[in-house]
Design a protein around this nucleic acid. Structure first.
Lengths: 137, 137
DNA sequence: TTCAATTAGTTACCTAGGTAACTATATTCC
DNA sequence: GGAATATAGTTACCTAGGTAACTAATTGAA
């Protein structure tokens, strides 16, 4: 098995998709890292920063930065938790208003990079990736 | 098809593997980006910086940094080309001497993260990734 | 109960990789 | 041949994400 090629193509795919997403989000004034946090917050309602980190498997410092940017743009609110160390994060009305446009853009971008990959391949790829990722944790 | 999950797991896999590789290379005094350049130089002999960029699908500025670090460590030499804008990059004897150890470390790291993923899955994954990547270019 | 250990979040600084703007050399076209 | 254009590489600066060291709050144990 050519493990080198496997890692190399995976790395390139990831970079390519990140770049494509960032380019699509640029006119909306968002970055990919912000979108990933927004997406989780939209589906989960509200979370502490720690929970957001755990969910996205990202360390705390980059998450602090992402959230501070979102706060500055008025898309996210930080509410102190019962445990006063915690900050509970939630989307603002402004964000909820913009959300459908963001989601549409991301969805269309995803579709466009997948349009030549058969549906069965997409599903097989997802299955293999999930299985691999699970074994790594 | 859940495109979001597909991109999310791909991104996480890529990050996880990058981190694992960097951790394994740390005691050798190398970073992953340096290894990827070294690997290409070892298999191709010598290349201009431009050719290295094209091969790794990386922009010129990060490649400049990677090479400058390798030059500083004495693992790489920059020779002016016939076209005086170009710099031809080649591994030094010092690098060639260390190479087997580096390769062994990387190989073992790759094996360790793949050990629970069946060979057939690995091959299928590589096939799907290559096919997808090809369609994106 | 008080003092040590743990935890949530921040700050500072590192690598990876991207764009924009620049320099210096090559190429093209009149 | 000389001016415009293209190309290789560098520099400056941006985001993404990592570790180490720190603060403040909480938990646990003597």
């Amino acid at each position: 098995m050519n493990t080198h090629e496997l890692f190399h193509t995976l790395h390139q795919l990831s970079r390519h998709l990140t770049n494509t997403l960032n380019e699509a989000l640029k006119p909306l004034g968002l970055y990919g890292s912000q979108w990933s946090a927004i997406f989780v917050l939209k589906t989960k309602g509200f979370l502490t920063q720690k929970e957001l980190c755990d969910y996205l498997f990202v360390e705390a410092p980059p998450m602090t930065r992402t959230i501070q940017r979102l706060v500055k743009q008025g898309y996210v609110r930080q509410v102190p938790g019962k445990d006063k160390r915690e900050k509970i994060i939630q989307l603002t009305d402004k964000a909820l208003l913009e959300y459908p446009k963001w989601e549409k853009t991301v969805f269309e971008t995803n579709e466009s990079v997948l349009k030549n990959l058969p549906e069965t391949s997409q599903e097989e790829l997802l299955r293999l990736q999930k299985s691999w990722l699970q074994q790594l944790k």
